[in-house]
Simulated scan of single mutants.
Amino acid sequence: MKHYLITRFNLKNNTWNTKHSSSDPLTTKWLNARIKIFEKICFPSVKNQSHQNFVWLVCFDQNTPEEYHAQINQWEEELPCFKALFINGFDNLNKDINQFIKDDTSFKDQYIITTRLDNDDSIHQDFIKTIQAAFKPEPCTIDIQNGYQLILKSNGVYDLRLLNLAYNPFISVVSPINDLKNVLSEEHHFWKTYYKTIFIRKEPLWLQFVHGSNVLNRTFKFAKMTTDLNSKDFGLFEINLPNHYFTVLSYNVFTWPYRLFSKLKLIILKK
């Protein structure tokens, strides 16, 4: 069994509804800003994994300006599992990922795991270890439901929320190599229709970062607020959360009815 953590770095999906030229992932402005976030939030968390038996496949547009190739080479040198894959546009993403995996596997690898990670998000040091421990050699998804949402507010202060989300952007897909389906071949919500799901409900093992440059992420307005984050577990040594105990307590008390209503709604819908 081989495991591929897959990150789309600067391949633009033409279905995204964006109005600003600054969202073009081939511009210097976008790349400089995203590299800064990647090196602060994402890269350290992957480097910090307690289990290193995986390939981190990071997908770049082949038209990425030459001036950034030295930086990409540096990441490969610093982290042996980091593999850069240059792709001719978003439309070739699925095909090229599948080809890379097929070239990288042997007849012994009947099933493989692919796991999604956005380039501005972070994973707990036991994230990969937990997924591989849940692996079964059959088509399925592995869904770690509990995580955090780290929100960078306009005043530069961080808010941290607890999330419980099924089929979230950190989902994993177990697929037979002879009928290969990688996790980026579909949006993460799609995988609820794929065979069965192994749900993992334990401590938060992922962190979604919401900042001014997100295209699709939204804040969960009434999610429970917390300051209980061990940053080192995520390789985040530059994140300092304000310790406003009474602010957090009052917010959670005020928003509790909304969370209760949401849970009751889900229970009713399941009946």
Rank of each mutant, 00 (worst) to 15 (best):
D96Q: 14
I97G: 03
I97L: 12
I97E: 05
I97A: 05
N98C: 15
N98A: 12
N98S: 13
Q99W: 10
Q99C: 02
Q99P: 03
I101T: 04
I101M: 06
I101H: 10
I101R: 02
I101E: 12
K102T: 15
K102W: 05
K102P: 06
D103P: 03
D103S: 13
D104C: 12
D104H: 14
T105M: 04
T105L: 05
S106P: 09
S106A: 10
S106H: 07
F107W: 14
K108Q: 14
D109A: 00
Q110F: 13
Q110T: 14
Q110C: 08
Y111G: 09
Y111R: 02
I112H: 07
I113E: 01
T114D: 06
T114Y: 06
T115M: 01
T115R: 01
T115E: 11
T115K: 00
T115Y: 01
T115A: 00
R116F: 01
R116S: 03
R116I: 02
L117H: 01
D118F: 08
N119Y: 11
N119Q: 09
N119M: 04
N119F: 02
D120Q: 05
D120R: 10
D121Q: 01
I123R: 00
H124M: 04
H124V: 09
H124I: 05
Q125N: 15
D126R: 04
